[in-house]
């Protein structure tokens, strides 16, 4: 009889493909965030939402950002099919490192030491917040069946 919950408990050991998917998720998110910054700085100074939406639609940065964040979503769904959420979710916080690096390399932003400290604290905090309770191993589950009674 197939285990109905087996789809929710994918293999625990990460494969190279899974690492690639996670790296892609982090990269897509990081680049998407930087394009969001480029979009924001290119928008005109206006409080008219229709004007802003129209301007955004004409900017290449908007489409790059949208495409990358969609890629991130698709990669994330693929990762979740092959990984436990409590393993994968904390690793996505590496996008804070990715955004920091890209802001320095691509946008020329200056990274202060306090920014690096900030990223470290947030990484640790997100990992603690994101971790769920570990799932029970099948060998230790339902110990009451060991007695052999029906």
């Amino acid at each position: 009889m197939p285990d109905p919950d087996s789809a929710l408990r994918p293999p625990v050991a990460p494969t190279p493909l899974l690492w690639l998917g996670l790296a892609g998720t982090v990269a897509a998110d990081s680049f998407g965030q930087v394009f969001w910054k480029r979009l924001a700085t290119a928008l005109p100074d206006s409080d008219d939402p229709l004007l802003l939406l129209g301007a955004a639609a004409r900017l290449p940065a908007t489409w790059w950002m949208t495409g990358l964040l969609l890629c991130q979503l698709l990669l994330w769904l693929a990762v979740l099919r092959r990984s436990e959420l409590s393993f994968a979710q904390p690793l996505t916080s590496l996008s804070y490192v990715g955004v920091g690096l890209l802001s320095w390399l691509w946008l020329g932003e200056v990274l202060q030491p306090r920014t690096l400290l900030s990223v470290g604290l947030i990484l640790a905090g997100v990992m603690l917040v994101s971790r769920s309770a570990p799932r029970r191993d099948r060998a230790t589950a339902a110990p009451e069946r060991a007695s052999g009674s029906p």
């Binding site: 804070y96 955004v99 920091g100 802001s103 320095w104 932003e109 920014t115």
Partner: peptide
Amino acid sequence: LPISVAYP
């Protein structure tokens, strides 16, 4: 705001 500030 720099994104290195906003995102964190």
